[in-house]
Nucleic acid binder design. Structure first.
Lengths: 328, 328
DNA sequence: TTGTAAGCGTTATCAT
DNA sequence: ATGATAACGCTTACAA
């Protein structure tokens, strides 16, 4: 019994007599033989694994994306390496290290700069981006943040007649936030209004709290706060409460992401639901296309859903009304 | 310049002249040389990676554990493979496959049966368990669910004078729940009472809802519902509301895990906080000890914290009072 | 201190 | 249909 025959049987190649196949299978069973993934990878020049680089795992957003991605990966019998960058200094090196252990990489927003992504592309590593714009020929999967921002802002502007809306969040910190801000400003423009400068802040609840406090203390108090994500919106609601302002009677507040907490918030947060799972799954499909040699891997953008609850000023008949944002 | 010298330089071994070291380093830089992790692993007989097997990623619990684990892993310059079992049929095979790609494995509760864990142990693979009892010589990291259950139940029994408490959850579905049920029953016994049979249900909000509906429709209505986790407790609160019962005036409700939502719940959920992050980090340290050849890797159990809010019947002075459950 | 060469456990290319 | 044997790109004695 030669080693080559075993290799053939074990990979299910044809060119083996059923008799010997059985023989080999038996031996494999008896000896509890497991091929070495290391040796196999070295010889066949691929890892049988892909990686995903995400910024953090607090909050359900990234967990869901990973879940969607993982489903596709497991369905293909591949393995999945993960790396959280957590705003670490050495993130780029960690990614560069990770890339040596996989056949392809999904890189999410807020992890490593475009330079690094570009470097990966130059090395010929299949890469897909998520939640950030394409870099060169590297495709990206995104949700339609711009469109949903326009939709949401117009709802506030025209549905509720707001005239002093303020955007809370820092467009320079994340491509998503940038898109949302752009949609916010664009909706204003279309309505013949000018959007005031965004109140810059980071992504966490406390950041939104502080920013809202600042915004609401301005002489001309805003009538509505459009926050870059739900965490920030929750902080904003807290700030309003602290100032003795009611939501939405005195000030409207909206978020992004529809985290589970959103529907339990006293103010019943109006927000935008992302197709998180589908985002991850789509990215996986794209990445495997790329790995498979397909060169026609195109960037995709997925539709979002406006979740209208009460914090925008709507009366809350049913739990929530959803409006899908149509593709543009 | 020989290949061996490069290998030495690259791994920072001593026995290399500073001069040649510089030379090699330069070449590495210029040629953008990256050692093949596959070849390196094959030769040195280790993967430089460990794996973590978890049931699911919905809810913050597992995400936090993974985060704690990941921190330790990255600090050691190792990689991390993940596998969610999601109650899939082929989970065991997936784990058996994963184990061939790592130097060690962290296996969480509710993923694969003890048989599979035992099989891994027989193969000599370093394994650490989390949230489930040790299997043979395979160590486990756990939170003190039993102790916290006793603590919580006694709070309800003696602090609030409850006499008809019901436990919601299925002890047979998860070792954690089993421990909690055991503590619940034990606290009753110590008080000279007998705990009624648990109302069996699965882990999600809807499951808790249904179970609570059943429990609260009994002729002798329970005065308190001790739920196996926060999701179930949220469902239970919903069920109470649906029956026109107020929490905690008509029925007390408690949970486990202290998910972010818990403090925003209208009923201000009293619950038990797990040291999730620390659980993951501890498991990682244990696993690396094991991989390092240490045979004195002992199981550990970490203290939990009772988070008293309002749903147990306590008046809500400050946001929440915490009581650490002392080691036993 | 540096170089040589024998593995590591597969796959892949030839012969047979 | 099967068996030898040369890669694959490192680590690791051992030699120089």
């Amino acid at each position: 019994m030669s080693i080559a025959t075993v290799s053939r049987v074990q990979r299910g190649l044809h060119g083996v007599t059923p008799a010997t196949r059985e023989l080999v299978l038996d031996a494999i069973e008896n000896l509890r033989y497991r091929p070495s993934s290391l040796a196999r990878g070295l010889a066949s020049r691929h890892h049988g694994a892909t990686g995903i680089v995400f910024p953090d795992l607090s909050g359900p957003y990234y967990a869901d994306v990973i879940l969607g991605y993982e489903g596709e990966v497991v369905a293909r019998g591949e393995s999945l390496l993960i790396l959280g960058t957590h705003e670490r200094e050495e993130s780029s090196e960690l990614v560069l290290d990770l890339v040596g252990r996989v056949d392809g990489l999904l890189v999410m927003a807020r992890t490593v700069p475009d330079d690094v992504v570009r470097a990966l592309g130059r090395d010929g590593v299949p890469v897909v981006l998520l939640g950030r714009p394409p870099v060169g020929r590297i495709p990206a999967v995104r949700e339609r943040s711009f469109e949903s921002a326009v939709h949401l802002t117009e709802h506030l502007l025209h549905g509720h007649g707001h005239r002093r809306l303020v955007f809370i969040g820092d467009p320079s910190l994340s491509p998503d936030v940038a898109e949302r801000w752009r949609g916010f400003a664009d909706a204003h423009r279309r309505a013949g209004l000018e959007a005031p400068a965004p109140v810059l802040c980071r992504f966490r609840e406390a950041d939104g709290h502080d920013a809202a406090l600042r915004a609401l203390s301005e002489p001309a108090r805003p009538s509505g706060l459009v926050c870059g994500n739900d965490e920030m919106a929750i902080g904003a609601c807290g700030a309003a409460e602290r100032l003795g302002l009611r939501v939405p009677a005195d000030v409207a507040v909206t978020g992004w992401d529809d985290i589970p907490l959103a529907r339990f918030l006293p103010s019943h947060l109006t927000t935008v639901r992302q197709p998180t799972r589908e985002l991850g799954a789509t990215a996986a499909r794209l990445l495997f296309d790329l790995i498979g040699g397909s060169s026609l891997a195109e960037s995709e953008s997925l539709p979002t859903e406006l979740v209208v609850r009460a914090s925008c000023g709507c009366t809350r008949n049913d739990d929530s009304r959803h409006q899908e944002v149509a593709p543009t």
